[in-house]
C-alpha cells in the first residue's frame, strides 16, 4: 500500500458505466484520459460522445502524470472525519493529455509554497486494495550546480 494522505472517511468516487473504466484504470495506477478514436480529441471526465466530431468511438490514453498547477485553493474546513487541515484542492494542467486539466489534490507541500504554474507530478494514494486516487505533489527541485 502507498503512502496515505487522506483518511478512509473521504467521500468515495461515484461512477456510472461511462466513467467506471477511468476508475478501474486508476486502480491499476494508470492515469488515463478518454480519446476520440476518429478525431483524437481528448476529454475528461469521460463522456459518451465527442463534443468536437460527435463520434461515440473512444479509447483510453495513458498519460505521464506530469503537469502544472493551473489554480488551487487551501481548504480550512473538514469534509471528512480525521482529515488534516488545511488541505489543498488544485486544478492540474496535464503535460501530455491534449491540453486537458484534472481536479485533484496537492500533497507534500504547505499551501504557502504553492504557486500557479509550478511543476507537479502524480502520486497514487491507495485508499484500499480496490481504490486508488491520483494526487499530485511538487516535482522535487534538482540540486543546483552552484551548490
Amino acid at each position: 500500500m502507498s503512502e496515505r494522505f487522506f483518511p478512509d472517511s473521504m467521500p468515495p468516487p461515484l461512477a456510472d458505466s461511462t466513467t467506471l473504466p477511468w476508475w478501474e484504470a486508476a486502480a491499476d495506477h494508470r492515469l488515463v484520459v478518454q480519446r476520440c478514436t476518429p478525431c483524437g480529441h481528448t476529454r475528461l471526465p469521460p463522456a459518451p460522445i465527442c463534443p468536437e466530431c460527435r463520434s461515440t468511438e473512444s479509447d483510453w490514453q495513458e498519460v505521464s502524470g506530469r503537469g502544472r498547477v493551473y489554480t488551487y485553493t487551501a481548504v480550512h474546513r473538514p469534509i471528512a472525519a480525521g482529515q488534516e487541515l488545511p488541505f489543498i484542492i488544485a486544478v492540474i494542467s496535464l503535460e501530455d493529455a491534449g491540453g486537458l486539466r484534472i481536479i485533484s489534490n496537492l500533497v507534500g507541500t504547505p499551501p504557502e509554497a504553492v504557486t500557479i504554474d509550478m511543476p507537479v507530478e502524480l502520486v497514487w494514494e491507495d485508499m484500499s486494495a480496490e481504490l486508488s486516487i491520483p494526487r499530485f505533489r511538487p516535482v522535487p527541485t534538482p540540486p543546483s550546480d552552484e551548490d
Binding site: 467506471l20 484542492i89 485533484s104
Partner: peptide, 19 residues
C-alpha cells in the same frame, strides 16, 4: 467506487474524492 445515481453525481465523482 460507488454507483452514481445520476449524471450529476457521476460528474461529482471527479470532484468529491478530492474533498
Amino acid at each position: 467506487v460507488k454507483p452514481a445515481g445520476s449524471l450529476m453525481l457521476a460528474s461529482m465523482g471527479f470532484a468529491m474524492p478530492y474533498g
